[in-house]
Design a protein around this nucleic acid. Structure first.
Length: 541
RNA sequence: GAUUGCGUAGCUCAGUCGGUAGAGCAGCGGCCUUUUAAGCCGUAGGUCCUGGGUUCAAAUCCCAGCGCAAUCACCA
């Protein structure tokens, strides 16, 4: 195997900015003796925590002692805390024999002041020549400057990593949305609010887990690679297992496996799951997205409604201090979290309205009067109406006219959907035309449905079979009957409530993000140029 | 998939009626021990997204393509 030298890795041509940075890297290593890619450092403080170590008293005492020492020629006593930090340089001001720079980490920014007289010659050269984007490690007492800026007065400086890439604009950051998504690693340090959103997302997901765990649910993991893509009527991504010679699908939902868990005796389970749907991309859809599915034995859709309302309300309450800390608008009463043009009020109880009532208000006729429904459908230009089943026409009209009546500024449960459009749901005990299902809408987005689950294997099999008949040629290539699932139901699944919540959309609402790409670290974009096209061809060997 | 808009230096953006390609930041060389988007002097940096077309002349007008965004469609 040939030795790879750093020179081999250098591109043939690069911008003068990059060339200048490479020259500095060489100089730092060869002339100044710094390892440009750093080493282990213990005892580092996050920058926001470092800032809290500042003491005005210690600063003033040191200031006074310094002046005295200047006259008497002694060494001033210093009670300031000495701390060690690391961060990326986001500002660099060279004043001659004094360098001010700002370091940034995920917790915030902190100034470092480097005086030529306070550090070794090599460290001084490093401080002078350091670039925007370099990762720096520094140690020293924390004080402030004449202008009052809290800072570390460096006594040592070293490199954590030399940055060889041309940095974004230091004031505007990275604003081109395409570049922000393609180079998220730059976006995250150049635009601090980006990193804040992802830190918030992490805490939100963590709170969801604590909420579920506190209620006695077990978190489980079920297959992403499935021989049959069941649990939702969405187009799956297809793949293949070489050793088994077996076609596989990326899951569109974990539902059928979580129900198998119920059959097995895990009576309260949840999974925070990545799903994959081979469909369009827009502000609220990414091909892979995160959901949480929940199943509770001997619960029903009412159990799931209480759980969902409590969870979302609790999350919204927890966002009040989060958003205040991040400088985002918020009202504690409710609470009210602004989102886009809306001020969404998460006060309990959430709005509840039946599908039938909303249909009557939105469409103006009784949904069971199919003649009137079809007349309305023609009136509103649903031209393929004649080909559709009665209830599908009802559903289409509902989505067209009734959903718009839902107040986007209030979380709203729409309950008791027509049974005919909900194959995995148990029909209503009081009215067989309806089923025990609700959907929750917030901000005009569907956040998730919940069902009283169907656990009668014969009814389930009949519904699956009926659904398959309705599938067109394309659908039938990936839709097939999950016989093992029906077999599991024959073993006996307890009655249960089930729930699915879109975590990305919930995080959008909680963090004030109006695009799903702003809450997914690396959203899918088309690949660029020929290398991307070649990669899409797959392995050739 | 459709429509509209955008694509100019590493980044953020100007570019008038079609007539030699511009600024700020970043970079490079200087000066400066208290800056807050530091400042000052000097300097370098371009496949104007790609490919065609119209024209004496195209960043600019036209066509096609690529990428991104918004809206719509699709997504129970």
């Amino acid at each position: 195997m040939a030795e790879i030298t750093p020179q081999d890795a250098v591109p043939l041509s690069e911008s003068e900015i990059v060339a200048a940075r490479r020259a500095k890297l060489k100089r730092f290593r060869d002339e100044l003796g710094f390892e440009p890619y750093g080493q282990r450092v213990d005892g580092l403080l996050p920058l926001n925590e470092a800032r809290t170590r500042f003491s005005e008293d210690a600063h003033l005492a040191f200031d006074a002692a310094s002046k005295e020492a200047k006259i008497s020629g002694g060494v001033p006593s210093d009670s300031r805390a000495t701390i060690k930090v690391a961060g990326r340089i986001v500002q660099h001001r060279d004043m001659g024999k004094l360098v001010f720079l700002f370091l940034r980490d995920a917790t915030g920014d902190l100034q470092v002041s480097i005086s030529k007289s306070a550090v070794e010659a090599s460290a001084w050269e490093l401080a002078k020549a350091a670039d925007y984007g370099d990762i720096l490690v520094t140690e020293g007492p924390i004080g402030r400057t004449q202008k009052g800026e809290v800072c570390i007065w460096a006594t040592s400086v070293s490199l954590g990593a030399k940055s060889l890439a041309a940095p974004p604009e230091k004031w505007h950051g990275l604003s081109d949305p395409e570049l922000r998504y393609r180079k998220r690693y730059v976006d995250m340090y150049a635009n601090p609010e980006t990193a804040k959103v992802f830190a918030m997302r992490s805490r939100i997901v963590s709170r969801i887990r604590r909420f579920m765990d506190a209620r006695g649910f077990l978190e489980v993991e079920t297959p992403v690679l499935q021989p049959l893509a069941g649990g939702a009527a969405a187009r799956p991504f297809t793949t293949h297992h070489n050793a088994l010679g077996m076609p596989l699908f990326m899951r569109v939902a974990p539902e059928l496996y979580l129900k198998r868990c119920m059959v097995g005796g895990l009576s309260k389970v949840y999974e925070i799951n990545r799903n994959f749907r081979n469909e369009g991309i827009d502000r609220s859809h990414n091909p892979e997205f995160t959901a949480m599915e929940v199943y509770q034995a001997f619960g029903d859709y009412g159990t799931m409604m209480e759980l969902t309302e409590s969870l979302i309300h609790e999350l919204a309450v927890s966002m009040v201090p989060e958003r205040q800390a991040a400088g985002l608008p918020v009202e504690a009463e409710g609470p009210v979290l602004p989102w886009g043009d809306l001020a969404i009020n998460y006060a309990k109880p959430f709005v509840r309205v039946t599908f039938e009532e909303l249909f009557r208000r939105g469409v103006g006729v009784d949904m069971r009067d199919f003649a009137a429904v079809r007349a309305k459908a023609r009136e509103h230009g649903l031209h393929h109406e004649a080909k559709l089943d009665d209830w599908l026409v009802v559903n289409a009209l509902f989505e067209e006219l009734a959903e718009a009546l839902i107040d986007p500024a209030r979380p709203t449960f729409v309950t008791d959907y027509p049974s005919a459009v909900s194959p995995l749901t148990r029909p209503s005990r009081s009215d067989p035309a309806l089923c025990e299902r609700w959907d929750i809408f917030i901000g005009g987005m569907e956040i998730g449905p919940a069902y009283t689950e169907l656990n009668d294997p014969d009814v389930q099999l009949a519904k699956f079979t009926e659904q398959l008949k309705g599938a067109d040629d394309e659908e039938s290539t990936f839709r097939s009957l999950d016989e093992d699932f029906v077999e599991a139901l024959r073993v006996g699944m307890p009655p249960a409530g089930g729930l699915g919540i879109g975590i990305d959309r919930l995080v959008m609402l909680m963090t004030g993000s109006t695009s799903i790409r702003d809450v997914i670290l690396f959203p899918l974009l088309k690949s660029m140029g020929s290398s991307g096209a070649a990669a899409a061809e797959g392995p050739t060997a």
